[in-house]
Amino acid sequence: MIVGGCGGPLSTLDTAGPASSDVATLWWVMLSGAAMLTLLVLTLLLLAFSPRNRPFKNGGRLWICWLGVAMPSAVLTALLGYALILGEGSIAEPVPGRVTVEATGHQWYWTFRQPGSNSVIATRGVLHIPVGQPVDVRVGSADVIHSFWVPRLGGKMDAIPGQINILRIQADRSGVFEGQCAEFCGLNHATNRFRVVAHDERDWARFQQEGGR
């Protein structure tokens, strides 16, 4: 469900996979909480200027113990618990048989390698994945630090020279999803873009056979 004005090729709110839609839900929950807290603070501030006699004079315990410590602690504990459970579900754990692709950041393009039916398929600028199943992306770098980010599918993962980081993405429907390098990587960082194409079952089989040609 797209709220008006939240669409766009790189929108984190126009979600197309489980990871990104979990985060979008988390965002809407946090937004409403933050709005309520802001309202609380502003109301208390305004009331301080009202001329009538105010209660809670010298109410150190109310201001400091309850509002200052207990309230934020309770809110934060609940939020942390929610976020930790959400994070737990999105960890990339090795599972045999899962589609695994290698993504390598360069100045200023991306290359991808993945096993095909006959040989290794190497692509540049476009990553092909199947719809409806999790894909492990092994993110690495050929030169400086980059970051692999397809906002409509999920969070980002840095491409750091000398190490491989694993990110799990999943597309719930077929289509083309825009990706963007998210870590500043020099002169043409702005145009360091790529695409993810999610194939349905028939297209995916054909891609694996023909290597995307």
Binding site: D22, V23, W27, A83, G87, S147, G154, G155, M157, F184
Partner: peptide, 16 residues
């Protein structure tokens, strides 16, 4: 800031 401290949200919002 509290929102960004939540790891899953930071994955999307970081460097944006």
């Amino acid at each position: 800031g509290v929102m960004l401290a939540m790891v899953p949200f930071d994955g999307q919002a970081h460097d944006s």
